[in-house]
């Protein structure tokens, strides 16, 4: 009787070990999948260029994109930095209330200009010119007030 009980316990123990080992192996495999590196935009960009990267000087496609501020933005400071991206090397002309500014886009097309706002709403126009004179313009409105909003 004692022999049979001991045998049953041993078989149960062995079976338990096998099952536990199986669970452990499965968990380990799942963890390695979770930690595996996922595809990054860098990998994808090699085969799928973004709209910006499609605009190269070689293609001569003029672009102008204002990255900041957004249209209808509200600001509490009188000095505003306008940033954007245009055709590399393009001449950027900013017209704002009572003044204007001319800056150049860098080799990547990035540009930035600090402008002064008047209290209330400000119409701001940004134009880019490439070497051939092709012009693109974007206009937006920024509201400046020191009142607590």
């Amino acid at each position: 009787m004692k022999k049979e009980v001991f045998l049953a316990i041993s078989i149960g123990f062995a079976l338990g070990l096998v099952i536990t080992f199986g669970i452990w192996t499965a968990n380990k495999s799942l963890a390695s999948i979770k930690n595996a590196p996922t595809p990054t935009p860098t990998t994808g960009s090699a085969t799928a260029p973004t709209p910006e990267s499609q605009t190269t000087p070689a293609q001569n496609a003029a672009t102008l994109n204002i990255t900041s501020p957004a249209d209808e933005a509200f600001v509490a400071k009188s000095t505003l930095t306008v940033t954007g991206k245009a055709t590399p090397g393009a001449t950027i002309v900013l017209l704002f209330e009572n003044d204007d500014d001319i800056v150049l886009a860098d080799a990547q097309g990035n540009f930035s200009s600090d402008i002064t706002l008047i209290p209330g709403y400000n119409n701001i126009s940004v134009s880019s010119f490439d070497a051939q004179g092709a012009k693109l313009t974007q206009a937006f409105v920024v509201t400046y007030s020191t009142a607590k909003i």
Binding site: N123, S127, K135, S145, A147, K148, I149
Partner: peptide, 20 residues
Amino acid sequence: STRLLVTKQSETDKRDTFFG
């Protein structure tokens, strides 16, 4: 709206940019 101002519309900006 937190603050609302009734105001006059500013005159249209007659400035522009030209290439030549």
